[in-house]
Design a protein around this nucleic acid. Sequence first.
DNA 1: GTCTATAGTCGGATAGAC
DNA 2: GTCTATCCGACTATAGAC
Lengths: 204, 204
Amino acid sequence: MAKAKRRSSSAGEATRAKILEATLATLASEGIVGTSARAIATAGDFNQALIFYHFGSVDDAIIAAVDRMSEARMERHRAALDEAATLVDLVRVARELHCDDQANDNMTVLTQAFAGAAGDPVMGPKLYASLEAWSSLVTDSIRRVLADAPAAAIVPAELLGQSISALFLGIELLADLDRERANTDQLFDSLEGAAVAVEQMLKP
Amino acid sequence: MAKAKRRSSSAGEATRAKILEATLATLASEGIVGTSARAIATAGDFNQALIFYHFGSVDDAIIAAVDRMSEARMERHRAALDEAATLVDLVRVARELHCDDQANDNMTVLTQAFAGAAGDPVMGPKLYASLEAWSSLVTDSIRRVLADAPAAAIVPAELLGQSISALFLGIELLADLDRERANTDQLFDSLEGAAVAVEQMLKP
DNA sequence: GTCTATAGTCGGATAGAC
DNA sequence: GTCTATCCGACTATAGAC
């Protein structure tokens, strides 16, 4: 891992990308328990040994894959959240982004990778960092939208950002257990209602 | 599995209990990826084959263990939550219960088992059920405490109960990634502050 | 009910040919 | 960079002695 590509070998880069893609797909479809080098290689239709050549270990491939996904996700979310001017806007944008995330299995990948890295002193902090950036983004969005509302300081924006991150991880963990019973539409409806109420309360 | 104990063999029951205990301990210390029949047997100092004799498979042992833990947890939580008369009470009790849960690795066990069962059509719903009971308990507590506050209907109590369940699962997933950075004390401080604010708003 | 032993599979990881 | 072949440890699960 981390070779700083000597001559930017195009074949190598393409393979690396294929491996990362297949790693994400395997995490989503087989879960962390089923994500072996062999399973990843089958999903991406390449040789199992390539994972070790390019990333050194399955764990490092997972870290790289989650990192890649998180960065791409961040950019899209940042662009969308920057458009939101009010609290209600924010909730509406959040609903759309959550739909995207579900369609792409982004949160499933995160929960599975996180569960697999639990207690691991090396892998854990690395994966934590990939969510922390997103958490900060949410914090910033809340701060911006509530800038002129002093009463909103009852709950610090940073804590809100972290809690929202945790909430969506938990929601995904439950949704992947039993797709039937998960109901995020209802949650966003209520969030929107609450946002309206808070706005009326803060600046009447 | 499910033998309805022919003659209530005391040795058998003791062994079953030992296996369940060791299964929980292994889930907490090794995570779902490291929870194999061998690891469980080592943790509990018994023969690996006993797991298959008593439960049929490792997965079924995990289901039984989580079920057992959830029931014991429910009883303790129900007793404590019934004492809470106000919203602020509720938050204070919740903080204590959360400390207990962390000391006993209850939530770590849940997140790990849930992650392992993700996408499994048999295991998933069974494990989901063990949290659903707790979720209902929280819903009931909130309803009871806010009974005479019509304005609280902005967010349905049931949805609040489910969201709180999800939130704590997510918090644990993050906490197990990086113990250093998790900060639930701060969260409960803010929750208590918010509870005070809500109470003053609802019945002045 | 509990043990030993083992079959058979799958896993991470590497050596070496190409 | 990629492939084949392989080592070897760990896994689930069962058969059969006790």
